[in-house]
Computed example of a mutant assay.
Amino acid sequence: MKHLALLRGINVSGHNMIKMEALKAALEAIEFTNVITYIQSGNVFVETEEESSFGVGFKIKQEIFKTFGHEVPVIVIGKNDLELCFKNNPFLKQKDVDAKKLYVAFISKELSSSAINELKISQFKPDEAVIDGNRIFIKYDIGAGKTRLDQKYIEKKLNVTATIRNWNTVTKLLEMYEEEL
């Protein structure tokens, strides 16, 4: 079974540095197959007989700590989850939307509909966010680097693990899933 693991916080600003070739070798050593990475920010496809996303994520997290000494949160998502991103992103329905301003925060657990109130989105206007299950669709007005509505804020407010990807990366990851690695 094919899984996509999103690693949070590697190779960012010189922290938790892991070369993708070394990550690939480490994961192959624990019997993942067809390990393919995409860009340096921690997107990795693996194949395994393990069906549980939680089990796959736990195994990857353990191996990263053992091999590289980094405590790295891992969120594993399936092809169906990624396809739902495309179907459910409300910002894609807006006329003339700039895809460069769109992001998705992948969350470690299903969020309740009341979670949007806990985020207090209105204080981030003109940035916008919409919760959809275990992801948050975000449209940044100025840019991801100039907002306080970031992964750290989301994690603190909702008591979850989160990792954010820009829309171009999400699009490419779905293409890679569909290419039958």
Rank of each mutant, 00 (worst) to 15 (best):
S53E: 14
D141R: 03
F86S: 07
K59A: 13
E178M: 08
L4G: 02
N11A: 08
R135L: 06
K61F: 07
P90G: 06
I131N: 01
L92I: 02
T161N: 02
E21G: 01
R135K: 14
Q151W: 06
V97H: 09
K125I: 04
V97Y: 11
K157N: 00
M176F: 06
I116M: 13
F124C: 08
A162N: 04
L119F: 09
V104D: 06
E28V: 14
Y140A: 08
Y140W: 07
A5F: 10
I10V: 08
K19F: 10
G42R: 00
A105L: 14
T67H: 09
K59T: 14
G14R: 04
V56N: 00
G78F: 01
V130L: 03
A115P: 07
Q94W: 03
A144E: 10
T67K: 15
E175H: 03
N168G: 11
L174S: 00
K120R: 11
S113V: 08
E31N: 12
V76S: 10
S108L: 06
L84D: 10
K66I: 15
M20H: 05
L82C: 07
D98R: 05
D150P: 00
Q40N: 12
A29F: 07
E83R: 15
V170G: 01
S122W: 07
N166Y: 12
N166W: 07
K95W: 07
L119D: 01
F137E: 04
G145W: 12
I75A: 01
E178I: 05
M20G: 01
I39K: 04
S113M: 12
I60W: 09
A26W: 07
E175C: 10
M20D: 01
D132Q: 13
N43A: 04
D132I: 06
V44Y: 03
A29E: 08
A115Q: 13
A5E: 02
P73V: 00
S114D: 14
T48E: 13
T163C: 11
W167G: 05
L111G: 10
C85A: 14
T161Q: 02
G9V: 04
E50T: 14
K2L: 09
G69E: 13
A25I: 10
G57W: 13
N11G: 07
N166T: 12
E71Y: 08
M176G: 01
V72C: 01
L92D: 03
E179S: 15
E63W: 06
G55S: 12
I131W: 08
T169S: 11
V12Y: 09
